[in-house]
Amino acid sequence: MTAAGPPSDAALAEFVYREARLLDEKRFDEWYELFTEDARYWMPLTRGQPDGETHTSLFYEDKLLLRVRIERLRSPNAFSQQQPSFCQHVLQRPGVEEIDVAANRFVVRTPFMYLETRLDTQHVLAGLAWHHLTSIAGMLRIRLKKIELLNCDAALPSIQLLL
């Protein structure tokens, strides 16, 4: 973004594509830097869940918990990753839902499929990703990434990487 105005739809979409790519390529430190200090990475457990405190979530991570995940994935003692998992995001075109320049708030909605694989076992998940973005010093940052999993109420296997 420049002083010329708010980010274009194309720039917002590009940001979402890049964010997914960083996860797929396991460039976790760069990915982590996309989040504001007060950011949340949230995957509710039910449809229409109002918050992450009075109800359990699948993820409700602040930056500290994201850092724990990233560091753990590098630990030689992360036994469930001794045969590592890999993931692939397949995104539909991100749609800009809200541009509020005064509030410095941009909301993007992206339908996705997500595949996570570990040796012979592959799981497919799908849902909607909501990116609540803000611009800091001309760079887009994530305030909230909310992932609405299509089968959030299903009995799920281990989901070991980040959607």
Binding site: M43, G52, E53, T54, H55, T56, S57, L58, F59, Y60, V68, R69, R72, A78, F79, S80, Q81, L156, P157, S158, I159, Q160
Partner: peptide
Amino acid sequence: QEMLARTTTYSRLINAPTSVVGHDDLH
């Protein structure tokens, strides 16, 4: 309400299919 928040936080951290504690147990 704070007590419920403690409970849901614990359950998410330890018991969820996304839990880094649960992953190693199940492994």
